[in-house]
Every structure is written in C-alpha cells, then in structure tokens.
C-alpha cells in the first residue's frame, strides 16, 4: 500500500530536486543562452564570494525568523483564548475570522496592505486622525515583515490551537491544586505542552517566508530582494538556470536543517 506514494514522491519530487542540484554544476553560454553541460563549481564560488548574495540570503533567513517569532507571540495568547476561555459560539466566530482571509487570493491581501501602508494610505490617515505624525514604512523591510506576519498568521494559530486544546484539564487542575498561580501554570505546564504546536506552525511560517518572492517584489523597497527574487531573475531575466539552481540550494539546506531540529522537538506529532 506504501508503494504508490513512495513512487510518487521519488519520481516527482526527489528526481526534480536531484535534477536541480545537478543543473547547479552546469553553465550557460552568455552569447547564445544555451546550456552547456560542463561540470564546474563557478556558480557556488560566485555565491560564496559575492557579498550581495550573502546579504540577500541572510536577509531572507532573518526576515523569515522575525516573522516566525512575531507570529508565535501573537498566536500563543490568541490560541489559548480560543481553546480554553472562549465559549463555543465565540470560538466558532474566531475560527471563521482566522480562516476567512485564507479564502481570498494571496495577491489581493498583499495589494491591500500596499494601500494600507502607502504614504497617503489608511495607516497614515488613521495616525493623523488621532493626532500622531505619519510613519514611512511603505516599501521597506518593515513593510515586508508586517505583511508576511499577517499572511502566514493562520498557519501558526491552527497548530498552536490544536496543541493547547489537547492539554488535559486535569493537568491544569493539578497545577492549581499544587499551589501554582496562573502565570506559573502557563510557564510550567501550558507553554511546554504548546511548544510542539509552535514548532509545527513555525515550519509553515518559516518555510513559506523563505520561499516567497512576490511579497518582496510588491511591498519591498530598495534592498529588499529575497533568495526567491534572485532565483526568479536568474531564470527569467538572465536565462541562467544553473546559477538559479545553485542559489536555490541555499534555502533547501536551511530548511533541511530546520526540519531536523523540529523533528527532535516532537513537532511532527502536533501537525
């Protein structure tokens, strides 16, 4: 029964990854644009030696990490309220509130944020309304951080909610019986048990941010390129598929390391 999924994964997924990796060692004739099957590591040396590509990789990983932390900080209290405090009707409404944005197009949501953050946009209009000076966050790394955090938030809330909901009431009662107050119960009982949910959610928020190239293009400013943008430009603009393949191995390696760490924390059971 296992055979069909294994074949599917092997052929469609792993074979594509292997091809990608092999292509990274080829090169392109700059004059005709033809692929030359000559083994070399020029692409990798170029990536490691150029400060631009290092900076882009670090920026991508940094913003992915910042988005993950932000989403975790928002999702924890929200999911706790949903799972343990809210009544059935409020909980249903909150579920709808979390899920509804996922029904609209990703692009619509990004463009909406562009209008909110623009110089004469909703945010500055609201700030003026309450007598505060306007802020200039449009088209910057700050804008990317806000938009990514918003877009991937549901993917963090849902696994954290599942993890918190699974905590048996008896554990919380035991903690209270033993004299722990709310804060201590949260720290010693709820958080450790919710952690696998957070790690599971972080796999989504981190990997989705790491691989994105549309949000940087739409709401990023100057110096907002992601790994995905360089890959996209290398294929589309320069027709340099080997270089794109070489650079695409960077997020692959980062994600593999991240998943290994996540597995150790038992996050896969919380999915």
């Amino acid at each position: 029964m296992l055979a069909p999924p294994v074949v599917w994964l092997g052929v469609l997924y792993l074979a594509a990854l292997v091809l990608l990796f092999v292509a990274a060692f080829w090169k392109v004739d700059s004059f005709t644009g033809d692929l030359q099957h000559v083994w070399n590591v020029d692409n990798f040396t170029h990536i490691f030696q150029s400060s631009t590509y290092r900076a882009i990789a670090l920026r991508t990983i940094g913003i992915a990490a910042a988005v993950t932390i932000t989403d975790a900080l928002i999702a924890l209290p929200f999911a706790y309220f949903m799972a343990r405090i809210a009544g059935p009707r409020t909980r249903a409404m909150l579920f709808v509130a979390v899920m509804v944005p996922l029904w609209s197009s990703y692009l619509v949501r990004v463009y909406a944020w562009r209008l909110i953050l623009a110089h004469d946009g909703a945010l500055n209009w609201a700030l003026h309304g309450i007598g505060l000076p306007s802020v200039s966050v449009s088209y910057s790394n700050w804008a990317m951080w806000i938009v990514f955090s918003y877009i991937w938030l549901p993917f963090m809330i849902l696994p954290v909610y599942t993890a918190i909901e699974r905590i048996p009431d008896s554990l919380l009662e035991a903690s209270r019986d033993l004299g722990a107050r709310g804060a201590r119960t949260t720290r010693k009982v709820v958080l450790p048990l919710a952690l696998p949910g957070v790690v599971a959610g972080s796999i989504f928020t981190f990997s989705l941010t790491l691989g994105d190239y549309i949000t940087p293009k739409l709401v990023g400013g100057t110096g907002s390129q992601f790994i995905g943008n360089v890959v996209y430009d290398s294929v589309g603009v320069a027709n340099n598929i080997p270089f794109a393949a070489a650079y695409a191995t960077v997020p692959l390696v980062v994600m593999a390391a991240y998943l290994l760490l996540a597995r150790r924390s038992g996050a896969f059971e919380a999915l």
């Binding site: 209008l115 623009a118 110089h119 004469d120 946009g121 449009s138 088209y139 990023g220 400013g221 100057t222």
Partner: peptide, 23 residues
C-alpha cells in the same frame, strides 16, 4: 542613487500606485 530610491518599479501599475499615493 539607491539610497534615494523609494522603490524600483517592476510593473507600470507599480509606478502609477507610487505617484497616486504620494510615495
């Protein structure tokens, strides 16, 4: 020039938005 630039526009509609919204 880069530090002076608000955004490098990719689509004509990007530039139209930038001018419309005062960015």
């Amino acid at each position: 020039q880069k530090p002076l630039v608000k955004k490098y526009w990719a689509l004509a509609s990007d530039e139209i938005d930038l001018f419309k919204n005062g960015d």
